[in-house]
């Protein structure tokens, strides 16, 4: 821990592995400011999250910030393995001027996906604790555990792109209600402006305050500087806050269940028809003896 605080990146990487393997726990650090410390960048596959994040990192580093990235990717449910490729798109880690201010770590969701959000949360705390200014969690907004990884953050930014169907599609994914800001990427392509308009319209249908919708092109860098500085001071929307606490509570509950000593045993009993779901759940709720 001391080595990691002193800037030893290998020691830091090891600490994060220990958290990932469930060998180490980190408490939530004390905070005395209202700025966000953890930001989630989420959205459907292929909308350009990594590319956009790369651009944002360039901007934020030039603002004098030191930023760590946790890039969450799904593990194969069959083999438990994972292919972690987000790093390929992060050119900032190769930038001699900026690479010391950026740390990128790939995180696989592994088999017990229910505990991933809490692991990611502790990894983020660890990074803040050893002195990184901000942590960005990058995650595909598809699948429950990925959505819950996003819910770990203080602020959630939803990334969208053109040709993603109408605004209702975004609504369906359940991410829109968690977002504090929305970015429509690929503004250079046809339909991006229309998609942004549709999202704004869809967001304003509700009675609550709506998050801002920004239009950018990560490829060409259009609108990036503005969005980068806006995001640094983005406020938490009350409506998103509630949904986020809900996700956090649910992931906490899920982890409690998964950590129960008898979990696998009860699962086998259900599988063999010896127990009903209600009976198994009642036993799980009794807690570990």
């Amino acid at each position: 821990m001391d080595a990691a605080k002193a800037g030893d990146r290998r020691a830091l990487a090891r600490l994060l592995s220990a958290i990932e393997n469930g060998e180490l726990h980190i408490q939530e650090p004390q905070r005395n400011d209202s700025d966000w410390k953890i930001l989630a960048l989420t959205g459907p596959p292929g909308v350009g999250k990594s590319c956009l994040l790369d651009r944002l990192l360039h901007e934020w580093v030039d603002h004098g910030l030191r930023i760590a990235v946790l890039a969450v990717d799904p593990s194969s449910p069959r083999s438990g393995g994972a292919l972690l490729g987000d790093r390929v798109r992060m050119q900032v880690v190769d930038d001699v001027e900026r690479k010391d201010s950026v740390y990128v770590r790939s995180v696989a969701t592994r088999k017990t996906s229910g505990s991933v959000p809490l692991v990611v949360r502790e990894m983020a705390f660890c990074l803040l604790d050893v002195g990184w200014d901000k942590v960005v969690i990058e995650t595909v907004g598809a699948g429950q555990s990925e959505v819950r990884c996003a819910a770990v953050a203080d602020r959630i930014v939803l990334v969208e792109g053109p040709a993603r169907g109408d605004g209702v599609q975004a609504e369906k994914a359940g991410l829109l209600e968690l977002a504090d800001a929305v970015i429509v990427n690929k503004s250079d392509l046809d339909g991006a402006q229309r998609h942004a308009d549709e999202l704004r319209e869809s967001l304003h249908l509700g009675h609550e305050e709506a998050p801002e919708v920004h239009l950018v092109s990560a490829l060409h860098g259009t609108g990036i500087a503005d969005v980068a500085s806006t995001l640094l001071s983005v406020e938490q929307s009350t409506r998103a806050g509630r949904a986020r606490w809900r996700e956090r509570l649910l992931s906490h509950h899920e982890r409690q269940l998964l950590q129960h000593i008898k979990f696998e045993l009860l699962l086998s009993k259900i599988e063999e028809g010896l127990m009903s779901f209600d009976e198994a759940y009642a036993e799980l709720r009794n807690g570990n003896e």
């Binding site: 438990g80 393995g81 292919l83 390929v88 990128v104 770590r105």
Partner: peptide, 27 residues
């Protein structure tokens, strides 16, 4: 990956230093 490991691919044309930084940061 299919054998159950977590594989981080670096992409093309990396320098030795870039590769080592990836190994270090990714543990």
């Amino acid at each position: 990956r299919d054998a159950g490991h977590e594989v981080i691919y670096t992409g093309l044309r990396r320098t030795p230093e870039q590769i080592i930084e990836t190994v270090r940061d990714e543990d």
